[in-house]
Every structure is written in structure tokens, then in C-alpha cells.
Design a binder for these strands. Sequence first.
DNA 1: ACACTGCCCTGCGAGC
DNA 2: TGCTCGCAGGGCAGTG
Length: 276
Amino acid sequence: MPELPEVETVRRSLERLLVGQTIAGIEVGSFAGVLGAVDPALVSAALEGRTITRLRRRGKFLFVDLDDGAGLEIHLRMTGHLEVANRDAPPLRFEHLTIRFASGYDLRFADQRKFGRVIFHAGDPEVELKTRLGPEPLLPAFTSEYLAGVLARRTAPIKSLLLDQRIVAGIGNIYADEALFLARLHPGRPGGSISAPEVRSLHRAIRRVLRSAIQYRGTTFSSYRDGTGQSGENQHRLNVYGRGRREEPCTRCSRPLAFLVIGQRTSHYCPNCQRL
DNA sequence: ACACTGCCCTGCGAGC
DNA sequence: TGCTCGCAGGGCAGTG
């Protein structure tokens, strides 16, 4: 389940391989919806001859910048996967889009569940996403004061608010649970009930959890791999995610962890360390 | 403005 | 053994 650290790891793994590559053409598989509602022929015509100048990440989105100012917006959702492969290599399982380069290499996009998208934008893709995305949690604009401001007077559970990409970009179910555990906050706490010191603690926990996960190249829970097919290592460092259902012991107090459903998402937490 | 629900999609594991 | 069923969840549209 790619969240910010996984998308950042993919970006880093692909950057050197993709920048400077010139697109010779694209091939769309049986699932044309991978390109959104856009006509594949138009996308193909727009991409042909363009050279990739940069790979950027914003929240869980990956942007591929092209030399004419256009770009691709890529979202992996749950099971999306990007990989660079030799032209002659066999197709990936669930491969929906192949971008062929003049060099003889391909960028392949595969997605078992067809949730992921590769959207072409004639201009900067980030501009269209601006209103839908909050600040980058690892950049200076994401301050404790900002977080306190957007949580104030909110009645929704903090877990749901952390998953809202307009509040802060890039946090998904895994890192929301991990950050709340580090900050010792119950996932069901109303956003507005969180005190100033608690917000500071949460702010610190979010940054720590994300930084550490990037360092360990993301969490491979089921299918996640980086752009070279390599698994992450952060799954061995999780405190709560995936452990509550099995009532595994808390890494801090050794009491059994628990899980509950908040906003239709499972939340793993320690009932002893994270009290309402 | 905010809170919340349902939809998309399919491999996999649990249970019968 | 073989089947069915429900779960996993990010983003967005839609409702109240």
C-alpha cells in the first residue's frame, strides 16, 4: 500500500533511470481506463518524442515532467507498480501501460486491482492538484502551529483527519496508525480535543515515522516493490499496523494491541498506551 | 464547511 | 478438497 515513503522510494529508484529518456511510443493494454478518461491515441501523440526532465513527488502522487512543460500524474493507489525493464523482457503480470523509450528500455505500469492511474496533463500536473492537497509533511510549511489550526474545532476522529489529504499530503492507513501510537493518541479522539502539547507530539511523530520509513525504503506488506523490484524493510519496524488484529504485544507496555474500525478503515492501536 | 457513505477492483485467507 | 464470502483501502462523488 504505497503511501508517502513508498512513493518517495519509487521516485528515488526510478529517477536516474528515467531522466533523459526520450519516449518512442506507448502501448495500452486491455484496461484503457489506466489513462483516465483520456483517449489513448491523444496521449500517445502527445508523449512521442518527449524527453523526461524530472521525477517529482507530491503526497502519494508521482509526477513525470517532460521537456515541453507537459507531464504525467501517476497514482499507485493500493497495488500499482512501476518498473523499468528491457524492451525484450516479458510483460509484468497485470501490466496496463508500457512507455517505450528510444534507448530500448520501457517504463511499465502494472496494477492488479486497476485502481491506479497514469494521467496526462498538457501543463504542470501539480497545479491541478494544488487545491486537493495539503502541505508536504516533511517540508517546513508543515508546522505544529499549522496542524493545530486545521485540527481546531474538528469533531471527526483524528485518524480520519490524518487520512484527509487536504489536511496533510501523503499519510495513509499504515503511517497514521504508527504516528498516533508514537504520539500516544487514541485514533478515535476528536481532532478538536487534542491539546497543544499533544499536537506538538503528533507533529513530531508524523515526521519521525515518515522519515524513518523512507530510510528503510518503505513498507512491503503484500505487493509493494520499488522501481527496480526491490522490497522495502520498514515492515519489520512497525509498532502497531497489522498487529492489532492478532492482539500481538505492545512494543512499549507488552499488553495486547487491539483494532477498531474508524471511518471504514481498520485502526491498530494499544488500548493501554493510547487512551480516549 | 464539515462529516460520513458508497463505489471502484480482485487476490487471498478464513470458514464451512 | 472445493467452494463462497469478506477483507484490504485511496480518492472522489454524492448526501445530509
